[in-house]
Amino acid sequence: MTRVLKAGTWVLCLASASAACTHTDLSRNAPGHIQLESPPKEPESTAAEVPEDPGERVLLLSYGVFAGGGARFEDRDVAGDFSVGPEIALDLGDRKRSHFEDDFFVLPDQSFGLRLGLNVLEHSLEPPGAAFSEFSYTEELFRVGAGWAWDVDDARHGPQITLAAGPLYLRASHALDHGTSVHGGLLIYGSHAWIWSQ
């Protein structure tokens, strides 16, 4: 089982390294905003006025791998620690300005999401480590998440919080009655977004 998880993690690492950010434009709610009752500015022109941009909604599926190192604090002992594992997330957010087709990234301005992950490789405990789930809020490139982590085979669980800025993250997990670990590291993500008009 452990070997399978390790192999899966390395496969995800390689997949994430080549991951792309793709998106699908949906036609829902596509008409724009107009001031219907106000007279047109150039009534003599037969061209229709371009509507105002109503913005967009974005459903974002992210998948990738985190890898970080830090310290574990338990019974007044401090030990070095690291962790590697897969993470997937589903975010729902919006954009004030609709994206241009040639934008390099198409991400929501702010979003709420659910993230699931697994610490497959850990220094201080026998793998697999703790699985976790977090609810998160993201604004631009900054994210804060809070949730719970469970390490089933070691019978540990407890709260977890994560702060992230772009691909960098800082994560603190506290296993109840078993100490706290603090990691910082890198998140490598690919994503696919489904986008429709507000």
Partner: peptide, 10 residues
């Protein structure tokens, strides 16, 4: 047609 949007047509 001069205006066309979510709330109608002008």
């Amino acid at each position: 047609v001069k205006k066309s949007g979510k709330t109608g047509v002008g």
